[in-house]
Amino acid sequence: MYTVIGDIVGSRSLKDRARAQQAILATLARVSSAMPLAQRLEPTFGDEIQGGFKTVADATLATLLIRLELHQLAHPSTEDTASAEPAPDLVVMRFGIGNGDVRVFELESQPIRQDGPGWHAARDAIDSLGRKPGTRYAGPTDSGWPAPAPVNAFLVARDGLVDTLNHRQRRMLLSALHGKPQKAIAEREGISESAVSQAFSKGVSAVRDAQALFGKA
């Protein structure tokens, strides 16, 4: 199993921690409904979340979807803000992905109580980031694919490219990852299809396609 641990970066700077936690719960629910899970996505203690996936591709995609969902909640489109309450603060997270066995002690507890090499690898991966946002992977180095070096090279490039996207482009990327066509994205954003096409050419399609190709590796 590929264990994912997420942690809020700069949580003390959040103006409303209760709303931030609500945003995290809403985000985990949305991502859980869109992806196959090996272990449920859930908050743990403090500012952390955890979950499990059958493939490294699903684990990396989940970290990207969580990041983009949180961003969309903080910076919604005009359509989303028409009758909604003010947006919550942007919650920024760092993620560690670990590969290895996980021993579950109490599946029905909330959060799940667990231990083992996979869980500790995810912890090592997130600790390697320090206090910076991003995603890192830790796993066996002598078992072929997925080796940590190429996975982390992909993650550094992917997350760096997402950093260059503006609020609207990140919402477009989230829609694209969910398979929405450009026409539907244009209608949601209230802009022309030509404007969406230009945004796709500036990085949106590159991230979407890179994530899809990584899933086939």
Score class of each variant (00 low, 15 high):
Val4Cys: 03
Ile5Trp: 03
Asp7Arg: 01
Val9Asp: 03
Val9His: 00
Ser13Met: 06
Ala18Ile: 09
Arg19Ala: 15
Gln21Glu: 14
Leu25Phe: 12
Leu25Lys: 12
Thr27Gln: 03
Arg30Gly: 09
Leu37Gly: 09
Ala38Ile: 06
Ala38Met: 09
Glu42Gln: 04
Pro43Tyr: 04
Gly46Ser: 03
Ile49Trp: 05
Ile49Val: 04
Ile49Gln: 04
Gly51Phe: 05
Lys54Gly: 14
Leu61Arg: 10
Glu69Trp: 05
His71Ala: 04
His75Ala: 11
Ser77Ala: 15
Glu79Ala: 15
Ala84Pro: 02
Pro86Ile: 05
Pro88Ile: 00
Arg94Ile: 00
Ile97Ala: 06
Gly98Thr: 00
Arg103Val: 15
Arg103Gln: 14
Val104Leu: 03
Glu106Ile: 08
Glu106Phe: 09
Pro111Glu: 06
Arg113Ile: 00
Gln114His: 12
His120Gln: 08
Asp124Met: 11
Ile126Pro: 01
Asp127Asn: 10
Gly130Ile: 05
Arg131Gly: 15
Lys132Asn: 14
Lys132Asp: 14
Pro133Tyr: 06
Arg136Leu: 09
Pro146Thr: 03
Pro146Lys: 02
Pro148Glu: 04
Val151Ser: 01
Val151Met: 03
Ala153Met: 13
Phe154Gly: 02
Asp163Ser: 12
Thr164Asn: 05
Asn166Trp: 05
Arg168Tyr: 03
Arg168His: 07
Arg170Tyr: 12
Leu173Gln: 01
Ile191Asp: 01
Ser192Phe: 03
Glu193Gly: 15
Glu193Leu: 10
Val196Asn: 02
Val196Asp: 02
Ser197Val: 06
Gln198Arg: 13
Ala199Ser: 05
Phe200Gln: 15
Ala206His: 10
Asp209Leu: 11
